[in-house]
Design a protein around this nucleic acid. Sequence first.
RNA 1: CGGGGUGUGGCUCAGUUUGGCUAGAGCACCUGGUUUGGGACCAGGGGGUCGCAGGUUCGAAUCCUGUCACCCCGACCA
Length: 479
Amino acid sequence: MAQEKKLVEAITSMSEDFAQWYTDVVVKADLIAYSSVKGCMIIKPDGYAIWENIQHELDRRFKATGVQNVYMPMFIPESLLQVEKDHVEGFAPEVAWVTHGGLNPLQERLCVRPTSETLFCDFYKDIIHSHRDLPKVYNQWCSVVRWEKETRPFLRSREFLWQEGHTAHATAEESEERTIQMLNLYADFCEEVLAMPVVRGQKTEKEKFAGAEATYTIEALMHDGKALQSGTSHNFGQNFSKPFGIQYTDKNNQLQYVHQTSWGMTTRLIGAIIMVHGDDSGLVLPPRIAPTQVIVIPIQQKKEGVLEKASEVCERLGKTMRAKLDDSDKSPGWKFSEAEMRGIPVRVELGPKDIEAGKCVLVRRDTREKIECSLDEVETRVAELLETIQKEMFERAKAHRDSHIFDAHSYAEFTEIANNKPGFIRAMWCGDEACENKIKEDLAVTSRCMPFNDQEHISDVCPVCGKPAKKLVYWGKAY
RNA sequence: CGGGGUGUGGCUCAGUUUGGCUAGAGCACCUGGUUUGGGACCAGGGGGUCGCAGGUUCGAAUCCUGUCACCCCGACCA
């Protein structure tokens, strides 16, 4: 027998090599292309369309809470970056510098923004004078640059797209409230739109943002059991307003420093979608974020009337959802595989036999279930199916997440889980950074967060040092 | 920054050990035809000067020197 012909470069299976699977999916689903700039990727139309949907939905939710969009410069003078000490120390190792303007060296070099706290602060100190000027709730959509040494598409690149919200408030209560509000907004977005369950919690001192008083995070669990920080919200208190001198006069004619927050989400979310929902055939997109929600694939499209009918069905679907017709001259088998690799939630198969019988076949991407459907009710059936898929994708992801959370009561148990069971580890913690460091060194596991909702008291002592422990922490290997 | 590896059509690679005729294959691409319910087939066609620079030689993808780039593994990170 002849050697089996390799028709398509297959996607490496997840179980064989998860990292390679990820790379294959990103490329085969046509989300990105590598560029000639190391560590920077080209986001192709299918990848960018996902980002646009994320932007639209997040932006809509932001504005419902009073957020206004602005745009800040992409360069930060070195002196400005250095105003807040922890902040510089955190970011200095990974900033890119502009040293020349044209042919002439600059008298002060400019960094390409790795984040814009300093610019917002510099701006706020000029525009905030009175309690009447507060709060300021600004956000910008932009890209930032961090000179990472190891890069991966969407998960870690030297330039990435994001939004960064920066707010200034009169009181500590208000800034805390906003910090939590945005974290919840992020969490709801992940769960409702991306069908991705998240753990909401607070970062430890060691893991919090450079310059923050408190960092809140949402942590998601990927299919391989590794955690991905999917969004963060920081309360700065007066850590930035003091060095930057952002003061207002309160109702009693007293000068006060403002309280600030910042919060961000990035194109990394696209990596999360891939690693939470994808399978060995490629991407699986939650319907609410999918650029194409349903694709119509004609069978024997050169036969009289087939293409016409397919295009009519597509047009009808297109009135209420994002629909596409694949009328390319590839074979149907090709189109099926292609639609699967791209993660399109529902495909409609339509051939001469169907047309004669007045029906079509609906196929779910997530389960591959085939459903016969009368052509008369195709719009309602597909719409229902999209809702079902969205709901079930979340439930499956949640079931996977919940079945990969393990409790450790002793260090032996902690070690055993870290080495053998991918997922979150729940354990008590004494609060000492030394214990956190030991876990990281021994097991390559970091504290993900101290959860808000899940503060069970599973043991009396820290498994590392044996001292009394009050806090429950989620630990895990992370991206 | 430390260790390992690779540079040959758009992609994946063979050829390099032992220098030798016109540099190969598969996939992709173009044209025509037959196909079409899970990555179709036939025929024809276009495209590379072997990462770059220098050297050795009658002759270099192949040997030597230098250089650049990228990938993988470890320390930093949305």
